[in-house]
C-alpha cells in the first residue's frame, strides 16, 4: 500500500516535470531567444575575426534581450570550433562566426570532418577581409607592374611572405602568380603578424596579407594592389588589381555567421534579422572600423552564392597544391 502510494506520487511528479518541461520548451520556441546565445569563434581572442564577434556582442546589447556570449575555440586552423558548432544542438543558441574564406579553403586542402555547405546554413555575412600585394618600404618595386616585370626577369628567384598555406592570403597570392604565369618562392609564417614583421624587415621581396595589416606601418610597408573588384573602404588610396588591369582571382574572406544545418528556418530568419540590425548600428561599425576592417552585410542566399563562386574559382589552385604533395 505504502509502496503503491510512493509509485503514484513518483509518477505524478515525473508527469508534472515532463509537462512543465515541455511547457518551457514551448514557451522558449515562442520567444526566441530566451537564453544567452553562444557565438563560437574558432580563433584566439584578440585576433581580427574575434574582433568582429566582440563588436557583434557589443552591438547586440541594445537590440536583443539576451546576451551574446563570445566563446573562443581555437585549433586546427578554425576547424575545431567549426566542428563543435556543427555537432551542437541546432536550436539557434550555438552559432559559428568565422572567416569564410579560410574555413572553405581549409576544408578543401585537408581531410576535414566538417563541410561548409553540408553541415551549416548561412545566417548572414557581417564583414569582409581582403588581402593585398605589399612590398617593404625600401623595395625597388614601386608598383605592381614593376614587381611583375622583376618576377618575369627572375622566375622563381623572388620570395614572398604569407600567413600560412591553409589561409586565403596564400591562395590569393598563388592565384595571382598563376594568372600571370609567374613563379616565386613562398615563405609561410605562422599567422599574419609574423608575416608582416618579416616583410617590414625586408626578409622577403613581397607578400600577400590583410589590407588592414598595413595600417600604422606606412614607414615600413607599401601596399601595391588590392585583391578585389572595388577599393577598400578604409585604405582608399590602394588601387585594385582590377583597376590596374592585372589578371587575378578574386579571393577574399567574407566574415560569416553560420548555424547548424538542422536549425529551424524561422529561428535562422530571426537571427538574420538581428544581424542585419546590429551591423547597421554605429556601435558595430565604429568598433570594426577602428581595427581597420570593413563591416559588410549580406543575406544568406547572397553569401552562400559568394562562397560557392569562391570554391569554383579556387579549385584549380587547390588541385595543383594537393597534387604537388601526392
Amino acid at each position: 500500500m505504502q509502496l503503491t502510494s510512493f509509485f503514484k506520487s513518483a509518477a505524478t511528479l515525473i508527469t508534472a516535470t515532463c509537462l512543465s518541461l515541455s511547457a518551457a520548451t514551448a514557451a522558449q520556441a515562442d520567444t526566441f531567444p530566451s537564453r544567452p546565445i553562444n557565438l563560437v569563434v574558432p580563433f584566439n581572442a584578440g585576433g581580427g575575426v574575434d574582433a568582429y564577434a566582440r563588436a557583434l556582442a557589443a552591438g547586440a546589447r541594445d537590440l536583443i534581450d539576451v546576451p551574446v556570449v563570445v566563446v573562443n575555440k581555437p585549433g586546427a586552423g578554425g576547424l575545431t570550433g567549426a566542428q563543435s558548432v556543427a555537432t551542437a544542438r541546432p536550436d539557434g543558441y550555438t552559432l559559428l562566426l568565422t572567416s569564410g574564406g579560410s574555413f572553405l579553403l581549409n576544408t578543401m586542402l585537408n581531410a576535414s570532418p566538417v563541410d561548409m555547405f553540408e553541415n551549416f546554413q548561412f545566417v548572414s555575412q557581417i564583414g569582409q577581409l581582403s588581402t593585398a600585394l605589399m612590398v617593404p618600404a625600401n623595395s625597388p618595386y614601386k608598383s605592381a607592374n614593376e614587381l611583375i616585370a622583376a618576377l618575369q626577369e627572375n622566375p622563381g628567384k623572388l620570395r614572398w611572405a604569407h600567413s600560412g598555406r591553409g589561409g586565403f592570403h596564400y591562395i590569393a597570392g598563388r592565384a595571382f602568380l598563376e594568372s600571370n604565369n609567374l613563379t616565386a618562392q613562398d615563405v609561410p609564417f605562422k599567422g599574419g603578424s609574423p608575416a608582416r614583421a618579416a616583410l617590414a624587415g625586408a626578409q622577403t621581396d613581397f607578400g600577400f596579407m590583410g589590407i588592414q595589416q598595413a595600417r600604422g606601418f606606412g614607414e615600413l610597408i607599401h601596399p601595391l594592389a588590392l585583391v578585389a573588384d572595388e577599393r577598400d573602404g578604409i585604405m582608399q588610396d590602394i588601387p585594385t588589381f582590377k583597376e590596374l588591369n592585372i589578371p587575378f582571382v578574386n579571393i577574399g574572406s567574407p566574415v560569416v555567421v553560420m548555424a547548424p544545418t538542422k536549425t529551424a528556418a524561422d529561428v535562422v530568419a530571426q537571427l538574420n534579422q538581428y544581424l542585419e540590425q546590429i551591423t547597421a548600428t554605429t556601435t558595430f561599425a565604429e568598433l570594426i572600423e577602428k581595427q581597420g576592417t570593413a563591416a559588410l552585410y549580406a543575406q544568406p542566399a547572397v553569401i552562400e552564392q559568394k562562397m560557392l563562386d569562391m570554391r569554383t574559382a579556387s579549385t584549380p589552385v587547390i588541385t595543383q597544391l594537393t597534387g604537388q604533395v601526392q
Binding site: 584578440g46 574575434d50 600604422g216 614607414e219
Partner: peptide
C-alpha cells in the same frame, strides 16, 4: 593588441 585596435590606436613603428 586587440585592446589597442579596439581603441583605435594603431600599433606599428609610429
Amino acid at each position: 593588441m586587440g585592446v589597442f585596435l579596439i581603441h583605435g590606436i594603431e600599433i606599428g613603428p609610429t
